[in-house]
C-alpha cells in the first residue's frame, strides 16, 4: 500500500498532469484538412505547445524546483521528445481525440514523413496500448522519463536519481495494485522507456527528412 506521503505526492502529480493538457482549440485542428505547408506549421506549433505544457507539468513535480537551473534545462531538453511520444501514445490509446484517431493516423501516413519512421511509432503506440496503462501510470512514467539521471550535461545526477526513485517506487506499488495478475507489468513499463529512447535518437533525422521532402 502507498504511504500517506506517497498518496499526497501522487495526488499532486495527477492534479498537475490533468491541468496541463493540450488546449482543445489546438487538438481540434488535428482533424482539419490542411495544406502540406500549413500542416508543417501546425505540427510545429503543436510541438512548441507540447514543450510549454511539459515544462508547466515539470515545474510542479515536487523537488524539481530545488534542482540547479541548468540541470532543470538539461532534464527537459533530454526528455522533451520522449515525453511527447509518450503523451501521443496516451492520446492514441485512450481515444482522447474523440475517436478521430483514425483520421489523424491516415494524415500521419500521408504526411510525407518516411514510413521507416512512422512504422516504429505506431508499433510503439500499440505496444503501450497492450499494457492497458491507467492515467496514474502515464503521469508517473512521464515524471520518471523527465527525471532520468543520465541525461547529457546533467551535473547533479545523484539528486535527480533520488527524485526519480521516489516516483519509480510509487509506480511499482501502483502496478501491483492495478495489475495483480500481471507481476511483469512494472518491468514491461520500464521496457517501454528503452523503446522511447530510440525515438529520441531518430527524431532529428525524421524531422529533417520531412522538411526536405
Amino acid at each position: 500500500e502507498l504511504t500517506q506521503d506517497e498518496i499526497q505526492l501522487l495526488q499532486y502529480v495527477m492534479e498537475s498532469y490533468n491541468k496541463n493538457r493540450m488546449p482543445q482549440d489546438l487538438t481540434s485542428k488535428l482533424i482539419e484538412n490542411l495544406s502540406t505547408d500549413d500542416n508543417f506549421i501546425f505540427l510545429t506549433t503543436m510541438a512548441t505547445s507540447h514543450v510549454q505544457i511539459l515544462v508547466e507539468f515539470t515545474k510542479k513535480i515536487p523537488g524539481f524546483q530545488t534542482l540547479d537551473h541548468e540541470d532543470q534545462i538539461a532534464l527537459l531538453k533530454g526528455s522533451a521528445v520522449e515525453a511527447m511520444f509518450l503523451r501521443s501514445a496516451e492520446l492514441f490509446n485512450k481515444k482522447l481525440l474523440d475517436s478521430h484517431t483514425d483520421v489523424l493516423e491516415e494524415r500521419i501516413w500521408n504526411s510525407g514523413i518516411s514510413h521507416d519512421y512512422i512504422n516504429p511509432m505506431f508499433s510503439f503506440y500499440k505496444s503501450v496500448g497492450e499494457l492497458k496503462m491507467t492515467e496514474e501510470e502515464y503521469a508517473l512514467l512521464t515524471a520518471v522519463v523527465i527525471l532520468t539521471p543520465d541525461r547529457q550535461f546533467l551535473k547533479d545526477k545523484e539528486s535527480v536519481e533520488k527524485l526519480q526513485e521516489s516516483f519509480l517506487h510509487i509506480l511499482e506499488k501502483l502496478c501491483k495494485q492495478h495489475h495483480p495478475n500481471n507481476p511483469q507489468h512494472f518491468a514491461r513499463l520500464l521496457g517501454r522507456l528503452t523503446e522511447l529512447r530510440t525515438f529520441s535518437h531518430h527524431h532529428t533525422d525524421m524531422v529533417m527528412s520531412w522538411r526536405v521532402s
Partner: peptide, 21 residues
C-alpha cells in the same frame, strides 16, 4: 514566432514563465 525558436529557447522561456514575451 515560437516555431522559429529552438527547443532550449522554448524551455528557458517556459521555465521563466514569460513565454509570451
Amino acid at each position: 514566432p515560437a516555431s522559429n525558436l529552438g527547443l532550449e529557447d522554448i524551455i528557458r522561456k517556459a521555465l521563466m514563465g514569460n513565454f509570451d514575451d
